[in-house]
Design a protein around this nucleic acid. Sequence first.
DNA 1: TTAAAATAATTGGTTAACCAATTTGAACAC
DNA 2: GTGTTCAAATTGGTTAACCAATTATTTTAA
Lengths: 235, 235
Amino acid sequence: MKLELLSKGDHQTTQNQIISKLRDVINAKNLEPGDKLPSERMLSEKFEVSRSNVREAIQLLEFYGLLKSKPQSGTFVADIGQIAMNGMIDDILALGDPDFRSLVETRILFELKTVRLAAQRRSQEDLDSIEAALEAYKEKVLNCENAVQEDLLFHLAIAKASGNSTMNTFMLMITPKIITNFEKYHVCDKGQAQKGIKEHQDIFEAIKKQDIQLAKEMMKVHFGVLYQYCYNVKG
Amino acid sequence: MKLELLSKGDHQTTQNQIISKLRDVINAKNLEPGDKLPSERMLSEKFEVSRSNVREAIQLLEFYGLLKSKPQSGTFVADIGQIAMNGMIDDILALGDPDFRSLVETRILFELKTVRLAAQRRSQEDLDSIEAALEAYKEKVLNCENAVQEDLLFHLAIAKASGNSTMNTFMLMITPKIITNFEKYHVCDKGQAQKGIKEHQDIFEAIKKQDIQLAKEMMKVHFGVLYQYCYNVKG
DNA sequence: TTAAAATAATTGGTTAACCAATTTGAACAC
DNA sequence: GTGTTCAAATTGGTTAACCAATTATTTTAA
């Protein structure tokens, strides 16, 4: 038996320690937006870790928009004041792997919003893409095959048609995590198949008609089961 | 004059090319979930790029949950079928830098949702954090100082209190991008100051009372101006 | 012939060396 | 003193060498 209680990834732990130390450096030196941090080499020596570890930590903070590295110059504090910097780093350090329920909850939020935006903004090209995804889905279902992939692409096509690149990106980030943890197996139920097809078809038609409210309602129906899973577990 | 038309980042371009080639490899070899990709060294030779470039591309696809690297073994296709794999990689390749409007639109969506969840789920500790952020905000505003940072932390405290780690993470990702592009300067207007304080106070009180609907309404009022910016630009 | 053991090759990850752009500061002309 | 030039040091980024774990292959024993 491997005793790994509260291990949580050795890598992750040291990474968070470095980030924490980076915050300390920023505070100790009273660095403000535009100020330069010590070089990666100095930091790696000071923290007694490898330079690549420091680089990785800096890159994460860069990802969150807190730092900015300039090629042959140095790493600089982004346009974020010290107070916000400290608060945000604390928040980042407190982040853990997202739980499944929060993923589902977030997905439903996105689905209900993107479908409205798609109904409102979709171009003809968008509509064609969604329809193609729908047809692929229907074909698989009618052949009694697993259509998880086609289902996913249908929803991603809607996200794309929403014209909101941020939501589109986020959908790409969370949806695979959900479908790989969900419906591992496939059962061929005639009733379920028809229900699934109808729900997708209804959503598509609403988008086509540009009926925003209807599109949202149809999507709500489609996610009814998952919705229950999220909000009625307690009750 | 530097002719950089459609440059879009040299790095980004080669990266996308590699990702595209990775997709081709997966298709050519008909790789399915669990199957192993060629080694990084082989790929770098085949693509005629450095191994670190290949690694970077693989890591991005790993970020989106499409691949999975195992330390001294190899890189494997995650639990995503070929159809979804192709569709998702296409989507990823089509992603561009998010436009400002989509960021704002997404932020408002999150704010309206997290404030409801916060009103519903907040612990006493959450409430204390939010109140502390509110007090810090009020103090700055009453002193006629710029309170952008305190405003940000107030909203992030609400996101944290929502109990949804996914939304919390996403809020951390987009909010800084917005505030750094917005309200670059600060004007001290007595009326505006009081208005800002009242709006924040109202939101806090609603969360404290756990009045979900009211919390949402107060947040909607708070983001009224931004909301207009998003949805009434055309009209 | 087959199972097991030993060894060689391969793997992603890590570290160290290297690079070109930038920055710094000393030398120097006026 | 002051502005300019130029060389040396510093920087983040990149490449190549190295590592330990894993996997494939060969050898060996029964």
